[in-house]
């Protein structure tokens, strides 16, 4: 296994670069990272629409989320592959197609993370914000979203891990990421298939396990910061004496 790693590690890591487009695990990370970043603004809009009191924001967002969470990523990729050349009139390169499919796919999951983040704040926050005269939009911008976004960070990192794993299927439409590299190696080194694919698994394992660990540490850090100060009661009792 170390032999495979030794011989082909550049192919696994960056594909045929610099003699070709950037591929390998670098392409995997770029695809996953830009997918999530591009999807996030859309997801914030969808997440807010999902909790909106207005029906005609809420229902379309709900349909969007249920649809793209209910079908496999590969179906979304096929749709993108089919629809995008028709929509743009150009032959769209596989990387761009895969990126659009991932943006749409992730938007549904990120929207649910945003929704959970918004729901996770005490209702008193939005009440207090409205009570001092802030409009719904101002309350969201200055009070709710700053707090909710910080709380979402561990979930967002975990979603990034999921996205990295999800990109492993895009080789099917010709994107030259790390799984594609492994298949290339396998076609040459046919007798050492197990080692080849375990090396592939190893790349993903190292990246995903590290990121999951980071997410857990962030979560613990946030939980510590939320500890209540001393002196705040949770029980309400009938107070008997005046405290003048």
């Amino acid at each position: 296994m170390l032999d495979i790693l030794h011989r082909y590690w550049t192919l696994f890591l960056v594909g045929s670069w610099p003699n070709g487009p950037l591929g390998g695990f670098a392409a995997t990370l770029i695809l996953a990272g830009s997918g999530i970043l591009s999807s996030f603004p859309l997801a914030i809009g969808l997440g807010m629409a999902r909790v909106s009191p207005l029906g005609w924001f809420r229902w379309p967002a709900t349909v969007w989320v249920y649809t793209f969470r209910g079908i496999p990523l590969i179906m979304i990729i096929f749709w993108a592959y089919f629809v995008m050349p028709v929509m743009t009139g150009y032959k769209v390169p596989p990387f761009a197609t895969a990126l659009c499919a991932i943006v749409v796919y992730e938007s549904a999951f990120l929207a649910e993370i945003v929704r959970a983040g918004l729901h996770g704040l005490p209702p008193g926050q939005i009440e207090a914000a409205r009570s001092i005269g802030l409009s719904y939009g101002q309350a969201m911008r200055h009070v709710i979203l700053p707090q909710a976004l910080v709380n979402m960070i561990p979930s967002l990192v975990n979603q990034f891990v999921s996205t990295i794993k999800a990109t492993s299927i895009v080789y099917i439409i010709g994107v030259e990421e790390v799984t594609f590299a492994a298949l290339q190696v396998n076609s040459v080194e046919m007798t050492r298939a197990l080692q080849t694919f375990l090396v592939l698994a190893g790349y993903y394992f190292v990246a995903c396990a590290s990121l999951t660990y980071v997410a857990r540490r962030i979560e613990m850090h946030i939980a510590q910061r939320r500890m209540q100060p001393a002196g705040q009661k949770t029980l309400v009792a009938g107070v008997v004496e005046s405290a003048g």
């Binding site: 492993s168 080849t196 592939l200 995903c208």
Partner: peptide
């Protein structure tokens, strides 16, 4: 558990299909 949660599912399928027969 760690292996199955950190490696993509399709890669796990490939490890079985391409890799296992060799051993």
């Amino acid at each position: 558990v760690a292996y199955h949660r950190n490696v993509p599912t399709v890669v796990q399928i490939m490890v079985w299909y391409f890799g296992m027969p060799a051993v």
